[in-house]
Simulated assay, not measured.
Amino acid sequence: MKPGDKVIMQGCYEASKEKYKGKVWTVKSEPWDLCGSEVVLLEGYSGGFATEYLKPVSQGENELG
C-alpha cells in the first residue's frame, strides 16, 4: 500500500457505519507500525488506520454510497 492508492474499509466497525460504508479513500502515507499493527493515513480520516481492514479499489470502481 502506498500514497495515492484508492481503498475501501472492510471487516471493521467503521465499514458498517453509514458515514463510511462504501466510501473510497485515498492513502496519504507510507505504512508504519503502530503497536504491532501496520497502519496508514487516509485523506479525510483522523489518525492511522489498520491496513488489514483496507481493500484496494480496482481502476474504474466508484464510491458505492
Rank of each mutant, 00 (worst) to 15 (best):
E18N: 13
A15F: 07
K6R: 15
V57E: 00
M1G: 12
S46K: 14
E30R: 05
W25V: 03
G22V: 14
C12R: 00
S29M: 05
V7T: 10
Q10V: 12
S16L: 07
E52Y: 11
I8R: 15
G47Y: 04
L34H: 10
G48F: 08
K6L: 12
V24A: 03
Y53I: 11
M1P: 04
M1I: 12
P31F: 02
C12H: 09
G65P: 00
S16H: 09
G4M: 02
S37M: 05
E43M: 07
K55M: 15
E18A: 14
D5A: 08
P31S: 01
Y45L: 07
E18C: 02
V39F: 09
E14V: 00
E52Q: 10
L41T: 09
K6M: 08
A15N: 05
K2R: 10
K55C: 13
V7H: 00
F49S: 10
S46V: 12
V39K: 12
L41F: 09
V40S: 04
G47E: 03
A15H: 05
L64Q: 13
T51Y: 01
K17P: 00
E61N: 08
E30S: 07
E52R: 14
C12A: 06
Q59M: 04
Y13P: 06
Y45Q: 03
K19C: 01
L42P: 06
V40A: 07
S16N: 15
S58G: 12
K21N: 10
F49L: 04
V24P: 06
K55R: 15
V40T: 00
C12M: 03
S58W: 02
L42A: 04
W32I: 10
S46Y: 12
C12T: 09
E61C: 01
K21M: 13
P31R: 02
Y45K: 12
Y45R: 13
V40R: 00
W25E: 03
K55T: 14
K55Y: 04
P3W: 08
E38L: 13
E52F: 07
S58T: 03
N62V: 06
L64C: 04
Y45H: 12
G4T: 03
D5G: 03
E43P: 00
A50V: 05
K28L: 03
G22D: 13
C35Q: 10
L42D: 07
V57N: 06
Q59Y: 11
A50T: 07
V27N: 08
P3S: 09
G22E: 10
M1C: 06
K21L: 11
L64Y: 07
E14L: 15
V40C: 06
Q59T: 10
V40G: 01
M9D: 02
G36T: 06
Q59E: 15
A50D: 15
Q10T: 14
T26D: 05
G22N: 14
V57Q: 02
C35A: 15
K28D: 07
P56M: 02
A15Q: 10
E52D: 14
T51H: 01
K55N: 04
K19N: 07
K28A: 10
G22K: 08
E63R: 11
V57A: 03
K21R: 15
V40M: 02
D5E: 12
K23F: 03
V24S: 10
G47W: 04
